[in-house]
Computed example of a mutant assay.
Amino acid sequence: MTSEAQTTADEAAVSAIARRDSISVRLVAEALLGFVGPRLSAEQLLEEIGLDPACLQDPDGRMDVRDYSQLWLRLARRFDDEFFGMDPRRLRWGSFVFLSRSCIQQPTLENALVHALSFLGLGLENLHGKLIRSQSLAEVVLRERNPEPARAFCYFTFWMLLHGLACWLVGRRIPLLAVELRCAEPDYTDDYRVMFSDNLRFGRPSTRIIFAAEVLGLPIRRSEAELQAFLAEAPANILVRYRDHSSLSSRIKQHLRSLPAERWPDSETLAQTLCISASTLRRRLAEAGQPYQAIKDGLRQEMATEWLADAAISYGEIAERLGFADVSSFYKAFRKWTGINPGHYRNLILAPARR
């Protein structure tokens, strides 16, 4: 292949990847909701900020993440509010830049999170976050002034700002073991599960995210030049890419979920089920950075965290469902996946609200 042809192929590959980076139109409508009313419709608002209102016509449609990023920025400029009009106090234009710049001055992620939560607590009236460490687990709990819960989009926007910034500060994705919200489950949650965690729990006593406490000690080592590059791409770079549900890994997970864990196939048998060769399966998973074993471990972890939140399911039953020989093997695997003890996780996730 000539260099020109190779360049064309590479550009086509990049374009194909970019097309998959998208946000549901349902979340576009959510972003507009705080600003529309009898005198300004969603379609009129989109036209006013220079975006095509036709995108709202298909509720199952998707918007390119770069266009969604422009939506966020233009709404923030238009209304001087980076929180989509969801709080009596506007999170004024430039708040995220100021927050990011001040957070890179902090020595560790724990200091940065405390600082960020204090800053957001000053900027917002209804939401005040607090970082709580509980042995090997950490949680950020939102204390709310309003007795009635906010809509899910409000909570997820808060987590997007906080979690997205935190991941960039330490240069790695911080896995969330659970996301709990006071509100009822909305009609659409697919993008939220991709952005944050498959383990979303609605109608809970408090709104919080739970993660391994070990990340709190990670150092903040970001330069001013890195900050400028980060801010130039924000908020697109803190919007997690949408998962293509037709992808190979998604098809594999769907197949595994249909079987008891002890009957999960080896890679050769799986390849036959998918009507491809074993070598092709390994190659395609390697290209996606998702080895078969990692897919199985990730699915076991998702199932384990889901079942640990149900007090009626014993540790022995969870171990059996996941295909482990005994509870001890399950404990060892869970600590390897998450860095924490499953008993500690269950105690925290089932603990009554202490806010």
Rank of each mutant, 00 (worst) to 15 (best):
P88K: 05
R263S: 15
T157E: 13
A18D: 15
G323N: 05
Q6P: 00
S15F: 11
S102K: 13
S41N: 10
R145F: 02
K336Q: 13
L73Y: 08
L142F: 07
S206E: 15
R263V: 06
R74E: 11
E268A: 15
S258F: 00
L176I: 02
L281K: 03
F119K: 08
S328N: 13
A236M: 07
W307G: 06
K253I: 14
D58S: 05
V141A: 05
P107Q: 00
R26L: 11
V25Y: 03
Q106H: 02
R283A: 13
P147H: 09
N126R: 14
M86I: 04
S134K: 14
E48H: 12
T207M: 02
A288D: 12
A236K: 03
Y345R: 08
F96I: 12
E139S: 15
W72S: 15
D60L: 08
R204D: 04
E224Y: 04
G123F: 00
G217Y: 01
L308Y: 09
R243V: 11
S314Y: 05
Y188L: 05
L227Q: 11
S328F: 06
A42C: 04
S258D: 13
L169W: 08
R26S: 13
E226H: 04
R300F: 08
A54H: 09
D58N: 13
A9M: 08
Q228I: 10
I295W: 07
F196C: 05
N347A: 14
P260L: 09
D64W: 11
F119T: 11
A225I: 12
T189W: 03
F79Y: 12
W93Y: 14
I49S: 06
E262N: 14
S246L: 14
A351C: 10
G123Q: 14
F330V: 01
W168H: 12
I17C: 07
R251I: 03
G85V: 07
D60K: 10
D80F: 00
T305C: 15
L177W: 04
I210A: 06
L227E: 11
L274G: 00
N237Y: 04
Y292T: 04
L299T: 05
L73Q: 14
I23S: 00
I17K: 13
L162E: 06
L91G: 06
I209F: 03
S3Q: 14
R145H: 09
F83P: 00
E214F: 01
A112M: 02
T280H: 10
F211Y: 08
L122G: 15
Y188D: 10
V36D: 08
T273Q: 13
A333L: 00
